[in-house]
Design a protein around this nucleic acid. Sequence first.
DNA 1: CTACTATTGGCAATAAATTGCCAATACAGT
DNA 2: ACTGTATTGGCAATTTATTGCCAATAGTAG
Lengths: 126, 126
Amino acid sequence: MTQQRTTKQFEAIRKAIDSAGRPLSIEEIHDVASRTVETVGQRTVYRVVRQLQDEGMIVGVSVPNGSDRYELASIASKHHHHFHCKACDRFFDVDGCPGGLKKMVPKGFVLEHHDLTLSGLCAACA
Amino acid sequence: MTQQRTTKQFEAIRKAIDSAGRPLSIEEIHDVASRTVETVGQRTVYRVVRQLQDEGMIVGVSVPNGSDRYELASIASKHHHHFHCKACDRFFDVDGCPGGLKKMVPKGFVLEHHDLTLSGLCAACA
DNA sequence: CTACTATTGGCAATAAATTGCCAATACAGT
DNA sequence: ACTGTATTGGCAATTTATTGCCAATAGTAG
């Protein structure tokens, strides 16, 4: 009985996300995985990322003006926000969360979630 | 000498954005303008919006998972944030701004802007 | 080692947003 | 009202992100 085979590609992709420490785009995952394994097709990255999402290991992060990023569900479940570097277009996790959001909600509106994105230059680009 | 003609379409589109009080998508602008003038092609909405952007009257607002919204530059210049209704997919302006963002910035990073999006249900949908 | 089949990956196809093209239309000066 | 041309708007084409297809490849059980 065979169900799930362990391939170099799958492992490379999983590890790339697992050790990134920040949300990665498909392209970034592809780049990182390609440094580990000789051949990794973009098609495979899309497929494995989808699978890991379905399994609940990672979650997608939608961003303005760009393709989705993916990060570990274990990190995403801890409330946090993101920093976007305008120079290298990478996203980083930041801790903390500003308070007093309820005051901003217009009358009659129901606040469920919020999303804060800081932007500027990352340490490497500054 | 002719340079800029005043057409019904142009006026309808400009007024739609001018009186919206919230950021509108191309589709929303098209819908509103179409209620004023019999014929307004989507193509024309794209063109006029671009023109108004170039002239500096309106600015584009990029959002995750969706096409750009457009709002008056006069409103955008006043620092504010947005509320996104998950039910009707409309965006609304909200006043106020949480403080203490600088504490969240990682060492070495340079904070230039920030963008907060509240989400949930608008008054009409709640 | 062999055979079976899960997985891969290149390329075409799709989906969604936006733009190019251009003939028809409708402002504006005379 | 007449004419010149700015503007319009339908449709095809483009762009970018993602998925379908399927023959080739490579894990894995025996």
